[in-house]
Design a protein around this nucleic acid. Structure first.
Length: 409
DNA sequence: CGAGATTCATGTGAAGTATACCTTTAGGCTTAA
DNA sequence: AAGCCTAAAGGTATACTTCACATGAATCTCGTA
């Protein structure tokens, strides 16, 4: 049989040696065997949580720190160790990690408790039951399991901001109501002022211990990168200065290690695809663009249709005119586009809320200003880099199936 | 000229509604003794 | 009579709408110097 081009390509691909010996190490959810520059935090958390291994209830913990400062990895790292030991010793301990930002999973009180109950093997419908009953189901399951639960709530500020702090109050009451089981909570937040917004009662019992993660400096990030790179890449793949530059890029913001690691991984992937022999410093610039791009495209792709239409409207207006966009003009265009697409336009009230949500996601930037005699409105601008405008627009058009109806630009 | 009233366009809170899903309950029908 | 199915009644959470009031600085008004 004659080999076609594609077969050839694949055969070559297999022969080609990969740059990576273990790419997982550079992926976001990887937990290394050793966590650098977080000794103090590890020690503190371990100390606080140690009572779990004697079936005692530890203090609740609040963890603060910006993105990429190692909060989640550190906590997971310590918890994994505890979990291992507790399994060996047959201590009934259950560690649960939930990210409160996840849409449709843990972003309301009902959904979060439902998710917890599901983890204990209960089937909970997506809607229909009273929240109180879901609590009851969860409490019963927990009581029957006779376990101590360590509940890690990541991005806890998100859910509290959205639904209030009763959730935490209710979770804390488990320890008074149940005999055989108990619960300890670790709250992770990147908003330092967060706990001040809590009800004093909740605050005092949740904030028993506080662990702060300060940003890494460039040298620390380099250190982390070196360690990971050594395990992830094969030898002599990275050119001189690559790690330093990744670290510098990440430190520029606020010491975001996650970003640095991602940058390194993507640089490697790009270099590999270009059939280079090594990863060059130039690759990092491409990588940064790609990382940024993927982050936004991913975020945007996962938004509900109505959100996308609003975003699309913003892009259209942004293309036509410079400067800030006002809610009114945005709403008019949105209304037109969404009805042309066959969606019933949402009310301005709702759109206003969606704009706020898009703002919180970091896709756009909105701020209310009074224009004096000319009313007050929200000034909206994009926070996506303008180099991505076309790409994002294309994605939106594709997702909204706008291809055939290209009467607006 | 300047203090205070006015005004505009929309922000924002509260209450109401539609939808999708839940449990309970009361028949109604089948079945087996 | 007991068992099973079904449909209606009466709930809930969530996303959205409706209603009504709140905002806040540019502009206007009008008394005063």
């Amino acid at each position: 049989m004659k080999k076609d081009k594609l077969t050839n390509f694949f055969e070559k691909f297999i022969q080609k040696e990969s740059f990576f010996q273990n790419k997982k190490i550079l992926q976001g959810n990887f937990i290394p065997d050793e966590i650098k520059h977080r000794d103090k935090q590890i020690e503190l958390i371990a100390e606080i949580l140690a009572p779990l291994l004697k079936k005692d209830l530890p203090s609740n913990i609040f963890v603060y720190g910006k993105t990429g400062t190692g909060k989640t990895v550190t906590i997971k790292y310590v918890c994994n160790k505890i979990s291992e030991i507790s399994k060996e010793q047959k201590i009934p301990l259950e560690i649960i990690y939930l990210n409160c930002k996840l849409k449709k999973i843990a972003d309301t009180e009902y959904r979060l408790i439902a998710q917890l109950a599901r983890l204990f093997g209960k089937a909970i419908p997506s809607t229909g039951l009273p929240t109180e009953e879901v609590y009851q189901i969860f409490f019963d399951a927990l009581e029957k399991s006779k376990k101590t639960v360590l509940l890690i709530l990541d991005e806890i500020d998100q859910i509290v901001k959205k639904t209030g702090d009763e959730l935490l109050y209710n979770l804390l009451r488990i320890n008074y109501e149940l005999k055989n089981s108990q619960i300890a909570i670790i709250g992770i937040s990147n908003n330092i002022g967060f706990s001040n917004e809590l009800d004093p009662r909740v605050k005092s019992s949740l904030n028993e211990e506080e662990v702060v993660f300060s940003p890494y400096n460039a040298i620390q990030i380099q250190d982390i990168l070196k360690e990971r790179a050594k395990l992830a890449f094969k030898e002599n793949i990275l050119e001189e200065g690559v790690i330093a530059k990744c670290a510098a890029y990440a430190a520029r913001e606020h010491g975001d290690a996650r970003r640095a690691i991602e940058l390194l991984r993507v640089s490697g992937e790009i270099a590999e695809r270009k059939n280079q022999k090594t990863v060059k410093i130039e690759n990092i610039d491409d990588a940064e663009e790609k990382v940024e791009k993927d982050r936004f495209l991913d975020l945007i792709k996962n938004q509900p249709k109505q959100f996308q239409i609003i975003l699309y409207s913003i892009f259209i207006i942004n293309e036509k005119k410079k400067g800030e966009i006002y809610t009114g003009e945005l709403y008019n265009l949105y209304k037109e586009i969404s009805s042309k697409l066959g969606f019933r336009p949402l009310t301005q009230r709702r759109v206003s809320d969606i704009i706020v949500e898009l703002d919180m996601l970091g896709i756009i930037n909105g701020k209310v200003t009074s224009k004096g005699r000319y009313g007050r409105t929200r000034e909206i601008s994009l926070s996506t880099p303008s180099t991505l405008d076309l790409k994002i627009k294309a994605i939106l058009e594709e997702d909204l199936d706008l291809g055939s109806k290209n009467e607006f630009f």
